[in-house]
Design a protein around this nucleic acid. Sequence first.
DNA 1: ATGTAC
Length: 384
Amino acid sequence: MSTAAENPASSSAPPAHVRVIASSQSWIEGEAVRQLEAMARLPGMRLAVGLPDLHPGKGAPVGAAFTSEGFLYPYLVGNDIGCGMGLWDVDLPARKAKPERWAAKLDLEGPWSGDVEGFLHEQGVKSSGFEMALGTVGGGNHFAEVQRVDAVHDAEAFAALGLAVDRLLLLVHSGSRGLGEAILRAHVDRHAAGGLVEDSAEARTYLARHDHAVAWGRANRALVARRVLDGIGAQGRRVLDVCHNSVTPCRAGGRMQWLHRKGAAPSDEGPVVIPGSRGALSYLVAPVGDGTGSAHSLAHGAGRKWTRTAARERMRERFTAESLTRTAFKSHVVCENKDLLFEEAPPAYKAIDRVVTDLVEAGLVRVVATLAPVLTYKTRSQGE
DNA sequence: ATGTAC
């Protein structure tokens, strides 16, 4: 059998190291740490790292990275295989931003009207059967956001990325839509939360599908970006694109390991953007150090503070939906699904500044620049 | 997170 829990040899292995990278000033839910510790007891697990945006998930915590030997765990990657953040440099000066006009007309619902197969081919990605969703943002915490530069902290690194203070940027957070979900479901139907023995036929099958979903998710972000850019009449250049839900092979002290990221940005692929809520700054950061103590990973966002249910109830009591379409930064929000508008409201998230400060103090990143929201696109569909 | 479930 290829299910890890059924391999008796693995139960005698030493337990994984568990590390939560967060200062005492960062509040982390007890349940999230319990989930991290539970995952650390899985067979073959070596290191379980909670980043400062650690929060409870459905079984496995979000904002965490795990290394294992001999086994890999699709359940730790989750359903949104290949989810990540892409940043585009937009060839439009910030003073030319027309957020209210763009908010009124931008529409990324439904299939793209262009040549989807041709687009995928250009990206070097095979089609998946989920192409009707290619170029759509999705639900939950996904978004496309036009941003302006708030402040530059490292002018050299900022310039090295080809960025300019007076130009707009576009940040896209989305994943592989229904594709990753289908891949995880096929695994869970047979193995529940159990892992796969590396080099087994099932592991190879999963990894091939996983790698395809990662590539397809990246292409999805590229098409979301293209649709937004077309909508605002601009061109863009992809500056970076990183995946925060994946499992990849890596070497540790000459040994082969599997690095699982569950809402954790890579620290070994150059600069990344760590977004706050739609009403907060996003941080463009450059990784520092060799990444061995942090499973080569960083926080991927602010992390939820309130559950979706609590956010809906609390925000509904105090705010009208209309008032939530503008933020403290005077930015505009397109989210015509009211439940989602309340669930993703800025108070439902932790303070991104604290999360990034924790990473800086842990010696994991240097801040390159802060980016402010101009227009956040979530959905035009009512949904209720 | 999700063409969202029996």
